[in-house]
């Protein structure tokens, strides 16, 4: 990192150095080198099984690489003690395809879960009975346009609504970077457009870095500055959105080599 500091180049938010990831005998990611800077809006595209979700899970510290290094906010995740790892993770908010909310809890508690990295155990426990920081949660829910659902049980909401709750949770978490792993794959096209627009607007307004994995190329082209194409665990291209040609896209989704 010394060279970065001396030459005044800002530390990248995410950096992957020669990363390989293997599950058993399956090579999910092969030799990935990647830098994502503060404020970038990046779309990861590729067919299913290309390694998009694995990449996202490496970036938020859920998975560790088989080889290589993952640097987040200038720290090598592999070298961190659990407490420091949690502090880094607190700065990374993740949204999932299947929402991954706690079904049995009310919306307010799922949103407040965004505070968990900062809250003490006691405060977290009390909040389950007497909700704390209600105003912050309400403001976040209002931003995603669902204020009236604050005290609903989460499993009573529709898919699009649950994804909005997940976004509100990230808002409350207030991280430096937002990762979204196929956030629209479980939603219909109308809902998909709303969610993607919402994500872009949030990242634009607050200057947060946004990394979204997408199955469909069209949204990536319209809403993101930079597109990374993944195919069978390798980076096929990494280019500004306007520089991605139809031929590159075709190569990305072609069935055989």
């Amino acid at each position: 990192m010394d060279s970065n500091l001396s030459s005044n180049i800002p530390v990248p938010i995410f950096e992957l150095k020669n990363v390989n990831k293997q599950f058993g005998s399956f090579q999910s990611l092969i030799n990935i080198n990647l830098q994502i800077q503060a404020g970038d809006r990046v779309a990861l595209v590729g067919s299913s099984g290309a390694g998009k979700s694995t990449l996202i899970n490496l970036l938020n510290g859920t998975l560790q690489p088989s080889e290589g290094e993952v640097w987040v906010l200038g720290r090598n995740l592999a070298s961190l003690r659990p407490k420091s790892l949690r502090q880094v993770q607190q700065q990374i908010g993740t949204i999932y395809q299947q929402f991954h909310l706690v079904d049995n809890l009310r919306v307010i508690h799922n949103i407040n879960a965004g505070h968990l990295g900062r809250w003490s155990f006691l405060k977290a426990a009390v909040s389950l009975i007497f909700p704390r920081d209600v105003e912050t949660a309400a403001r976040a829910l209002k931003q995603v346009g669902m204020l009236e659902k604050l005290y609903q049980r989460t499993d009573r909401l529709s898919g699009g609504q649950q994804q909005r709750v997940a976004i509100a949770r990230v808002l409350v978490q207030n991280p430096i970077a937002i990762l979204a792993d196929e956030p629209i794959s479980s939603l219909d096209s109308e809902r998909s457009r709303e969610i993607i627009q919402l994500l872009r607007q949030l990242s634009q307004d607050s200057g947060k870095t946004l990394v979204t994995s997408l199955h469909a190329f069209e949204y990536a082209h319209t809403y993101y500055q930079r597109i990374i194409g993944l195919r069978q665990g390798r980076i096929l291209f990494d280019a500004p959105a306007e520089a991605v040609s139809p031929a590159m896209v075709e190569a990305l989704y072609r069935l055989k080599d």
């Binding site: 949690r86 880094v88 990374i92 999932y96 706690v102 965004g114 968990l116 990295g117 155990f121």
Partner: peptide, 26 residues
């Protein structure tokens, strides 16, 4: 999955238990 997503946002083990495990099992 819910518990893992809480872990990914920096919650401690006991907090994951409180928010991600207990509400589902109780």
């Amino acid at each position: 999955r819910a518990a893992r997503s809480l872990k990914a946002l920096g919650a401690t083990g006991s907090q994951v238990f409180l928010y991600g495990v207990l509400p589902c099992t109780l």
